[in-house]
Amino acid sequence: MSHTESPTAMGRDQIVKNVQEVLEEALGVDPEEVTMEATLTGDLKAESIDFLDIVFRLEKAFSTPQKPFKIGQGELFSENLLNDPELVKDGRITPKGLEVLRSKMPHLDFAVIEGDPQISRLPELFTVKSIVDFVERKLAA
């Protein structure tokens, strides 16, 4: 993986390429499977423990000596966020829960589950594109 480019100068194509490589290595999938629409847990068969591996690999892939790329817990994936009964009730994300998630996780497209915001559908939002968007937004910050 190339570290020669400055991350601020990294274009979306290069971000996509690096994210695809990270997912291929972390999940043992073939390049053609890692499409932008592919979901991590559904299409690419990621298990919960793979998320930690993916976070570590993304940090490595996008860090430079000048600017470390550090992903905080709950920043990319929704760890522990939804154990709060105010945010999730009877297996459904409450309107307040959706509001909190939208502000904390702008890389996810909540329109996909808005009509039926079951907590069990949350994994559908974690697509390859959502990871690329997350990285792009974070590098630009």
Partner: peptide, 9 residues
């Protein structure tokens, strides 16, 4: 290689 609050590689 890497570590944070959640774990380590």
């Amino acid at each position: 290689e890497q570590h944070d609050a959640a774990g380590a590689a």
